[in-house]
Design a binder for these strands. Structure first.
Lengths: 200, 200
DNA sequence: CTGGATTTTCAGAATTTTCTGAAATAACAG
DNA sequence: CTGTTATTTCAGAAAATTCTGAAAATCCAG
């Protein structure tokens, strides 16, 4: 491994975290190098920077492309493939959430829907299905909320995040003017419902 | 493995997903069994249900306790240890987010803070540090937002999630009455700032 | 104490994942 | 075409993780 100390420290950390994040060490390190580079990076650079076999770098690049976290970027006068990360940090966050949702949540949602269609054959199964229903409801609520939020432009998103829990104060305050008219949640207070169709 | 078909299907799915979720198959299956059970579950039950060695069950239980996803629950007239999951599904979600944040984000935040203290020794390092700064900023914003949100009671949280992006409409609308008075984010519009102290 | 029931620990086996080096394939300039 | 450069594939090696069975430790009733 052949990198300036500051960069190397970050790259090594990403390697260590890799397994916790569901990628492997090499994938983590390769991503870190590309993320920190101020120019497109090619496989040779990565072999040099990370110090693993070229074939391993190739695998890592394939994996990162399957996550859509890196893109090919051709460099003038070069035959080799060069890569860059998504330019905007918020685009990266959105992609990460999207992909992890796809890999870690969607399959379970599918299974839950299947199993909730079946009729329980015993009290034991009936109770189990009740639990599955709870889980399904929570996942639907959370992913539905995110589907809504992800469509916001970044500026708006940052605004919302900056507000934090103050948003609730805002809601309180609104409730004082517009008395509850119902909504899609279970609670008795909600928005006035003029901002688009209900979710499924 | 010895379970009713509906339950078995769910348990097997949790086992398969385990590796994507950063736990192993047995831990996933053991959790699923306890989650779906309508009574506290002991190690013997789990050996029977999941069909792995008792020692493996013991490891899985330890792991799940380290996540604080299961609790010991003594059963009248039994010497053996029985376990239950957190009762409320929202408590489970909160715990999951808390733990994954602790394991997957906090270590990186620490490293970022360390590396951002150092002075870059080259243009390459200066640029890298800029990227680290972006990453640090995003993580702080997201985790700060969550710290705020997690304090809400569940009813309020569900209300907020149900609103989805409508919340933004509400903000728009508020802005029309109260012209921007600043806030903690970068954006020019924010809450009225009467909901507690600013975050660091 | 003692003895049985239960849980925990841990060394090594089994399995899975990651990594390598070599060969195959592809891309392209001349 | 042909030769060179670059990328991909893949079988097996290496490493890491998971799992087991046996032994040790713990717990508790009598």
């Amino acid at each position: 491994m052949n990198l300036p100390p500051l960069i190397q420290a970050f790259v090594l950390h990403f390697g260590e975290m890799g397994s916790r994040w569901g990628i492997n060490r090499t994938v983590g390190q390769v991503y870190a190098v590309i993320f920190l580079a101020n120019r497109p990076v090619c496989a040779d650079d990565l072999v040099d920077a990370v110090g693993v076999a070229r074939s391993n770098v190739a695998m890592a690049l394939k994996e990162l492309q399957s996550w859509e976290l890196i893109r090919l970027k051709h460099v003038a006068g070069e035959r080799r493939d060069f890569y860059v990360t998504l330019d905007d940090i918020w685009a990266i966050v959105r992609k990460l959430v999207e992909q992890r949702k796809r890999r870690e949540i969607d399959p379970t949602l599918t299974v839950l829907r299947e199993l909730l269609m079946q009729s329980p054959a015993s009290e034991e199964e009936r109770f189990a299905q009740e639990r599955m229903q709870e889980m399904h409801g929570v996942i639907e609520l959370l992913t539905g909320w995110y589907d809504d939020i992800e469509r916001l432009e970044t500026e708006r998103l940052v605004q919302l995040l900056s507000l934090g829990a103050k948003i609730v104060k805002a809601l309180d305050w609104k409730d004082k003017l517009f008395v509850a008219k119902g909504g899609r949640g279970k609670s008795k207070t909600s928005g006035e419902g003029d901002a688009g169709p209900e979710r499924s």
